[in-house]
C-alpha cells in the first residue's frame, strides 16, 4: 500500500459516521416513547403499531426507496417541507437520508428497548409511585436506568444498521460526494468501475466493523445476563 486512498474515501467515511450518529440520536428520541407505549398500553391495536414499526425488517429496501422518493419529492410532503427554505425536494439531501435511515432503523431500536421495558415488569414503577415519584420522574430515574442494556443494544444496532444501509440510499441519494455518497454506495461505485483496490480496502474495513459490532453485542448481552442474576 504505497499510494494513499483518495480524499473521496475519507469524505465518504466521515459522511457515513455523521449519518449514523445523527440517525441514532433521532431514532432513540422517536423510538423510546414508542417502545414505552408498546410495553405499557393495553390497547388491543398495539400490535398493529408494533407491526408497522417492524415492517422495514421484511420490506425490500427498494419498496422504502420508492415510497421515500415519491414522498420526499416535489409532489409529496417532503417537497412542502423543503419549500420552507426554498428547496424543491428532500431527496438527494443529507436530511432526506436521515429521514430514510430513521424509518429503516426504527425496528432495530424499538424492539430491544421494548423488551427491556417489558422485562422489568410493573413492580419497580409501582414502588416508585408509592414513594410519591411522579410518572415522569419514575420513568427517568427508575425505568430508563433499569432498561440500560436495552438502550445500549438499541443504540449500537441503530448505528451499525445505518452504516450498513445501501438500497434506500442508492435510490434516494443521487451519489453526491459529501452529502449522500456514503460508504456502501462508494463501494458499489468502485465495484461498478472496476476499482478493486479501493473496493477491497473499504469492504475489508466494513467487515471488520461488523465483526467488532456483533462481537461486542454478544459480550454485552452476556454481561447483562450475569449482572441480571
Amino acid at each position: 500500500m504505497t499510494e494513499s486512498l483518495s480524499p473521496d474515501v475519507w469524505i465518504a467515511v466521515r459522511l457515513t459516521i455523521d449519518l449514523a450518529a445523527i440517525t441514532t440520536i433521532v431514532v432513540l428520541a422517536i423510538g423510546t416513547p414508542i417502545a414505552w407505549w408498546l410495553s405499557r398500553t393495553r390497547a388491543w391495536w398495539k400490535e398493529v403499531i408494533a407491526t408497522i414499526v417492524a415492517m422495514p425488517l421484511v420490506l425490500p429496501p427498494t419498496v422504502l426507496g420508492f415510497y421515500l422518493l415519491v414522498l420526499l419529492g416535489p409532489d409529496g410532503p417532503g417537497g412542502t417541507i423543503a419549500g420552507l427554505w426554498g428547496g424543491r425536494t428532500l431527496a438527494f439531501s443529507f436530511t432526506g437520508l436521515v429521514i430514510g435511515s430513521v424509518v429503516y432503523s426504527l425496528p432495530f431500536v424499538v424492539q430491544p428497548i421494548r423488551n427491556a421495558f417489558e422485562a422489568m415488569g410493573e413492580r419497580p414503577l409501582e414502588v416508585a409511585a408509592t414513594l410519591r415519584a411522579s410518572p415522569w420522574r419514575a420513568f427517568w430515574t427508575v425505568a430508563v436506568p433499569l432498561a440500560r442494556p436495552g438502550f445500549l443494544t438499541a443504540a449500537v444496532l441503530g448505528f451499525a444498521h445505518t452504516v450498513g444501509e445501501f438500497g434506500v440510499v442508492l435510490m434516494i441519494g443521487g451519489n453526491i460526494p459529501g452529502a449522500t455518497k456514503v460508504l456502501s454506495v462508494a463501494i458499489y461505485d468502485y465495484v461498478e468501475t472496476s476499482q478493486w483496490r479501493e473496493a477491497s480496502i473499504l469492504s475489508g474495513g466494513m467487515a471488520a466493523f461488523a465483526f467488532v459490532v456483533i462481537l461486542s453485542m454478544i459480550l454485552m448481552q452476556k454481561r447483562a445476563a450475569r449482572v441480571g442474576k
Binding site: 422518493l69 415519491v70 420526499l72 419529492g73 416535489p74 409532489d75 424543491r88 425536494t89 431527496a91 438527494f92 442508492l170 435510490m171 443521487g174 451519489n175 453526491i176 458499489y188 461498478e192
Partner: peptide
C-alpha cells in the same frame, strides 16, 4: 448541482419523479 443515477434508467427516473428539474 449533479445528482447521479447508477445507470441511465435511474437518471431518467430522478427527472420523471420531479426530484430533479
Amino acid at each position: 448541482k449533479f445528482v447521479e443515477g447508477a445507470d441511465i434508467m435511474q437518471a431518467f427516473q430522478f427527472v420523471d419523479t420531479g426530484n430533479a428539474e
